[in-house]
Write a protein that binds this DNA or RNA. Sequence first.
DNA 1: TTGAAAGCGATACCAG
DNA 2: CTGGTATCGCTTTCAA
Lengths: 325, 325
Amino acid sequence: MATIKDVARMAGVSISTVSKYLNGGNVRPENQEPIRKAIAALDYRANPHARGLKTQRSGTVGVLLPTLSAPFFGTILGTLDRALRANGYHMVISCYGSLHGLERDYLRFLLNTGVDGLIYFPENLSKEEFQELTGSRPMPVVQVDRVIPGVDTDVVLADNTGATYEAVCYLIRQGHRRIALLTGSNVIFTARERLVGYLRALSDYEIPYDETLIRSGDMVVATGYQGLQSLLALPDPPTAILCTNYDIALGAITAARDTGLHPPGDIAIFGYDCEEIFSMMTPSLPVVMQPEEEIGTLAGQYLLERLSGFAGPPRCTRLANKIIY
Amino acid sequence: MATIKDVARMAGVSISTVSKYLNGGNVRPENQEPIRKAIAALDYRANPHARGLKTQRSGTVGVLLPTLSAPFFGTILGTLDRALRANGYHMVISCYGSLHGLERDYLRFLLNTGVDGLIYFPENLSKEEFQELTGSRPMPVVQVDRVIPGVDTDVVLADNTGATYEAVCYLIRQGHRRIALLTGSNVIFTARERLVGYLRALSDYEIPYDETLIRSGDMVVATGYQGLQSLLALPDPPTAILCTNYDIALGAITAARDTGLHPPGDIAIFGYDCEEIFSMMTPSLPVVMQPEEEIGTLAGQYLLERLSGFAGPPRCTRLANKIIY
DNA sequence: TTGAAAGCGATACCAG
DNA sequence: CTGGTATCGCTTTCAA
């Protein structure tokens, strides 16, 4: 690998002149030409470690999230990547999966990698654990989709409570009284918020809360499939189902169809995420559309602002969902 | 941020002793204790840039792939991540999306980031472009799922041709003669291979090839949905459909159901990926299950071997799919 | 505008 | 086993 020294020698100028050329300083045109040529001839590329050592910047941003399998996260990452890259930053992605303890380890690992900032979808870490890990270094962090209570960083969230509230109200206005909820584990921030919206809607319409209508588990297809089956086995089964995640909705719809019930006629099913596929069905199913692209863009923007020195108080933005009936 | 110097001073030993302690060298026990304490007290962490500059290693592996939205890639990345991480490596992930030109840019960017090795799912880059970018640096590369013809690296592939061959043979043995193919764009390596298997099976059974039965497009839900609709609009529509991707299959199934056709009774639909959901249906649908986890693990293993100095000739492994009827 | 030289923080050789 | 020191490749004063 050629170094800046080799370029300087070949171009017949000093190292500092090459450096200046590289970083947009003033270099006399008659010097630019040989430098350009030498760089091309040697296929020179700046050593990122040397540069990082000197500048204390790596040009990378860490992304810590639960999984890449759910399309929700994939879409956010797509726009996030675009936003960051447009400003010269790379993403270093780590998924902690559902494996316990991994979230903590990966966070530590990521912080030690020398990333300049962090996009963090937290799940199961306490305020104390987080602070202990990030403690001594003042790294910009944006929490996305979820928050650790008490951890004061920039935050970008979807309006989870509002979404399930609206969805349940809609189902009630359609005449439903037995409305089930298929949702994620209670340790997950979004699942807790979505439960609140569900309960609030029932309460506003004075519909008694029946805890046998709630099923929570991992946010995977099986949870929706088995959840629906077990709901149908109830003495007084629900007539409507609110699913709070794409995989769960897919499982529920599949289970319904396999039982001979065709939504929305035979049973109302409210989807979440991946609007495209629910809208595509005939008749289409109502669905909560989360603003994935906005989330990714805004999270990127917040982080970029911090990276370029913005020091205002933490910002928390709650983005509206779009509900397609 | 504390440096190794601070630790040395606080512990009352020299920098080199601390370095040795850090890297598992021999240090007298009575020195270890104060060093350990100083590290804890100062919350010291080695500066990755300084270390990288000296060692010429970054401990990161680049991953360049088309998208994170398809579950196929997400699953591979999960096991890949585990394999790499167990050996102290991180992934730096870049998705080039469907956007043209991005694949090239991101490859360049990744190479300049100082990754130690590369896991690459190529799509639209020529041998020459690839070689020009990687040219002067001897970086270990493993091509996964796809190959650039003529680029001689370790390779891990699924048996695409075999899978579609078997699937079509199965459909033929079930009595089908009009078998459609909903697949990806022809620029994609896997799509080309899958087409070959499809054609070979037809040919082996002496079934004439009808090009109006082939639809190719982006590997998204809409392609399957619209593809099926347009196939049904044919004067002599197919009785069986082979889908070569999860999203496409989902779209096709949805379109069929929306038209009142219930697979597999009214129309045979063969799925691909995400076996779970197809098997879950009643009756279940046949599906090609790709060995995502094996792919991720083996790709990781190949790369790790190269990273630790293995210099044998390039290896190419073709992993079997599992077909669930 | 240019170039010499001082680090950035860690590793590793080598002498003690 | 320990510690002084050269070195990795680059950026950044500071003089000229």
